[in-house]
């Protein structure tokens, strides 16, 4: 087993983790950032970021690479595509075992594991992902030129992406589980004004069907219980977000009923020396700016703990 000790270990190399790394390493702390995928997190999933102050419209990937390079230039070590095999957090010296071959210890751990798109979890979804079911309109929209598709969800992403998908699809049906939308009024109005879009409300999709690719869906009206099916070429799912916190289940870190990490104002969790930053924690606004703010606060608090 390879062994190494750091002042701080950060779990997750998204906007929050990389920012915490920048503050910690500039504060002369030794820092390891671990990520189960490549650095960048959800920024990589964002084609265009237009609301990060001081940066004219840029690709999320480019922004994430700049943040990573900045963190590395100040001395952060970044290990990507790792798998965390074991963790002991409720001790003075936190211990994280990686890839079953390395053990890293530190005084502080910052959890910045972010979140991911929620799946519908209905029959056929896994099998037909990439074969008609998609979670990224900008990536896969052009496969649906002149096709009939559905968009599932009622928030801003669902309604905005439904409108953008009308550039390709000949018909877009928005399927939502309530009788009203959660999206901003302007997004709802834009969707309602688009004559390629129609709506099925109070409805859940119950299964996806298809051989080589998606051919139809079955859906159920939640008020009447009536079940119907519809032929479809594609279905885009935008039903919100799920925090990446499953790996914390046996660590003692306190989660709320939505599996988000509970923190105080300094972003400390219930375990001394363990902090949480970014989309993985309980918060209202999930944006790059708020993740970066969390990274700053947790990084500064971690420095205080390290030098205590």
């Amino acid at each position: 087993m390879k062994k190494k000790t750091y002042d701080a270990i950060i779990i997750g190399a998204g906007a929050a983790g990389l920012t915490a790394g920048i503050y910690l390493s500039r504060g002369k702390a030794s820092v390891l950032i671990l990520d189960t995928a490549i650095p960048g997190g959800q920024m990589i999933l964002t084609h265009q970021v237009a609301n990060y102050p001081g940066v004219p419209s840029t690709s999320g990937y480019a922004l994430s690479q700049t943040m990573k390079e900045q963190a590395v230039s100040f001395g952060c070590e970044v290990e990507s595509n790792v798998s965390i095999s074991n963790m002991i957090l409720d001790a003075d010296h936190k211990q994280i075992e990686v890839n079953n071959d390395s053990v890293y210890t530190s005084k502080v751990v910052i959890i910045a594991s972010g979140g991911r798109s929620r799946m519908l979890q209905v029959a056929g979804e896994n099998e037909l992902k990439g074969r008609g079911i998609s979670y990224c309109a900008t990536c896969d929209g052009d496969f649906f030129q002149d096709k009939e598709i559905a968009v599932v969800g009622g928030g801003n992403s669902a309604l905005e992406e439904a409108v953008s998908l009308t550039r390709y699809a000949c018909k877009v049906t928005i399927i939502h589980e309530f009788d009203h939308f959660q999206a901003f009024d302007h997004a709802v109005e834009a969707a309602k004004a688009n004559d390629k879009i129609n709506f099925i409300m109070d409805t859940h999709i119950t299964s996806f069907k298809g051989k080589d690719s998606l051919e139809s869906i079955e859906y159920k009206n939640l008020k009447t219980g009536e079940t119907q099916s519809m032929a479809l070429d594609g279905c885009f799912v935008f039903i919100g977000y799920q925090p990446n916190t499953e790996f914390l289940k046996r660590t003692g870190v306190e989660l709320n009923s939505r599996d988000e990490i509970m923190t105080d104002e300094d972003l400390q969790t219930n375990i001394p020396g363990v902090l949480a930053a970014g989309d993985c924690r309980m918060k209202k606004v999930r944006q790059i700016t708020t993740a970066v703010a969390d990274g700053t606060i947790s990084g500064m608090k971690a420095l205080e703990i390290i030098h205590r």
Partner: peptide, 12 residues
């Protein structure tokens, strides 16, 4: 392409 679903696969 150099898009969100592809970049992570190239990285791996």
């Amino acid at each position: 392409r150099m898009g969100p679903m592809c970049i992570p696969v190239y990285g791996v």
